[in-house]
Design a protein around this nucleic acid. Structure first.
Lengths: 123, 123
DNA sequence: CGGTTATATAACTATATAGTTACATGCATG
DNA sequence: CATGCATGTAACTATATAGTTATATAACCG
């Protein structure tokens, strides 16, 4: 279980329930009961999901009477977004083709690694 | 273990070793041995990491003689990027303040959920 | 063919995760 | 101060993950 911030953030986001919780919180703070309401799951289960989100810094716990309202803190997502930018060119069409062009320039020893283009049979 | 694409992608990215592998592959395809070289880890361990990346669709396995070169496929990251966009406003300063402004407009029952601002004591 | 190289798989261990039920704590209020 | 609501924690189960060593497969090369 890696403990660096980026890994914790990715791990926290790797669950649909937790992503739904974040979506709920993106429109405002909510109590634990309110958060739990849409889910077919016991409160302790939700409580655990919230703890994961808190440890990743994606959610902040407040205090109001007997409530412990949770609030979204999207800041860690910034790190994810920045990390992703290193790869944007790889999934954007225009540059994908440019990448393919470069790859084709240097007939690499691994030019068959999942390429869609068929390799010429040796004559 | 959630099986939806987004969860698999996030989970695959939640490990520094796997992210390093992707970084390596971002500069071109590589054999498994080449991928494993920088790591203080046995080959089967790397092999397992590669399988996780493949199942998430982030890596494609090729075939060349006795090599099974891996190639980056960043396409699933597009989904991550798009999902993240829903939250960008929350981490960008300008809109964070706008959000705080809106929150302050409607004195919410949960307005103390981790807010930095002190609530007025009831007179 | 037989050895070497590259990679994959099996079997095992340790730890983490996601859920459960049962119980404990804390605060507000009649 | 006793009761009830909101939440948290403990203890337990089942499954998944990350690593190991040992073994298997597969292709090339002399």
């Amino acid at each position: 279980m890696p403990t660096d911030q980026l890994s914790k953030t990715f791990a926290a986001l790797a669950d649909p329930t937790r992503r739904e919780i974040l979506a709920r919180l993106s429109s405002g703070a909510a109590s634990v009961s309110e958060i739990a309401e849409p889910f077919d799951m016991t409160m302790p289960a939700i409580s655990k999901h919230l703890k994961v989100l808190e440890k990743a810094g994606l959610v902040i716990r407040g205090k109001a009477a007997q409530w412990r309202p949770r609030k979204l803190n999207a800041e860690p997502m910034k790190g994810v977004s920045e990390w992703l930018e290193n790869y944007r060119q790889h999934w954007e069409d225009r540059l994908d083709r440019f990448d393919a062009f470069l790859t084709d320039l240097q007939p690499d020893k691994y030019d068959d690694a999942g390429s869609t283009k068929k390799k010429e049979a040796k004559p």
